[in-house]
């Protein structure tokens, strides 16, 4: 599936992005949001809103995932929004498109490079966070839980990166692609709660009532339609006593759909793209 040329393209993008000024600016934000949150939430005296007191590693990491949702995904968008539009703007895209390498492979190299450029630092910070929490709670975690946790982080970053790249294939200026990427991030990070409330209200559910089972069920279902929601569903598969009416298999199928559909869209765009 991957040949050395795809890897070479990806490696070039990773090297360029990791050394970029953008990364230098974003790295402190990522450190603050991921290990910073993990440190705070693993404090033995911490009390979260609603009287929640996380007492195991996976639960703390679940709340730490806020750092991924707020900072990781945004940094993914900011790192990849000009993945194609910049090349189009400078004329380099035309040079790339005139090379014999199949467009599908070029697309694969681009997607892989941009994804890994954000995944490498975020995974490193996620690993550090996990170790911090394990150290502070003096607990260990099982391998399947660890794999699911890292895979979930990888997937949400992939979704945001691939959507940014798709937007980048359509836009002929940098503003449009960054607006699309940030707009998508804003919708799923902040506005999705509003969408959920509106749907629940229209369905006759008492939105204001805390722990309303009907509201939890609707929220669980609508979360499958949002990358952030699917991400949380995936992380919830590691938590005991959480039931929002969505079985783990549904969460993973949804994750697969969120992965495959945008990828096919991106591949199709790249096969027809013109300078």
């Amino acid at each position: 599936m991957f040949n050395t040329d795809i890897v070479a393209i990806a490696r070039q993008i990773i090297a360029e992005k990791l050394r970029s000024t953008r990364m230098i600016v974003m790295l402190p934000i990522l450190i603050l949001f991921i290990p910073g949150i993990a440190w705070g939430f693993s404090d033995p005296d911490v009390m979260l809103p609603g009287g929640v007191r996380p007492d195991n590693v996976m639960e703390v990491m679940f709340y730490t995932s806020l750092g991924i949702v707020f900072a990781g995904t945004m940094c993914g968008v900011l790192l990849s929004y000009d993945g194609i539009s910049k090349d189009r703007f400078t004329g380099v895209l035309e040079v790339k498109l005139s090379q014999p390498m199949p467009r599908e492979e070029q697309a694969m190299g681009l997607a892989l490079g941009h994804w890994l450029a954000i995944l490498i630092p975020v995974w490193a910070l996620w690993l550090i966070s996990t170790l911090i929490v394990m150290f502070r709670l003096e607990q260990g975690i099982a391998l399947p839980e660890t794999v699911a946790s890292f895979a979930s982080v990888g997937l949400i970053l992939f979704w945001y990166v691939i959507f940014s790249l798709i937007a980048s294939t359509y836009s002929r200026d940098q503003g449009t692609s960054v607006a699309f990427g940030v707009g998508m991030w804003f919708l799923f990070t902040f506005l999705w709660a509003l969408v959920t409330s509106m749907v629940a209200f229209a369905s006759g559910v008492n939105v204001g009532e805390v722990n309303n089972p009907e509201m939890i069920r609707i929220e669980g279902f609508l979360d499958l339609l949002s990358p952030n929601g699917v991400f949380h569903h995936l992380l919830e598969t590691n938590l005991a006593d959480v039931d929002r009416g969505v079985p783990p298999i549904t969460s993973w199928i949804s994750a697969a759909i969120w992965t495959v559909m945008p990828w096919l869209w991106f591949k199709s765009r790249m096969s027809r793209i013109q300078p």
Partner: peptide
């Protein structure tokens, strides 16, 4: 593409 070399007009190569 395998047989042709193409030099487009005014490519603004940028980057580190």
């Amino acid at each position: 593409r395998a047989n042709i070399g193409h030099m487009p007009e005014q490519v603004r190569w940028t980057g580190s």
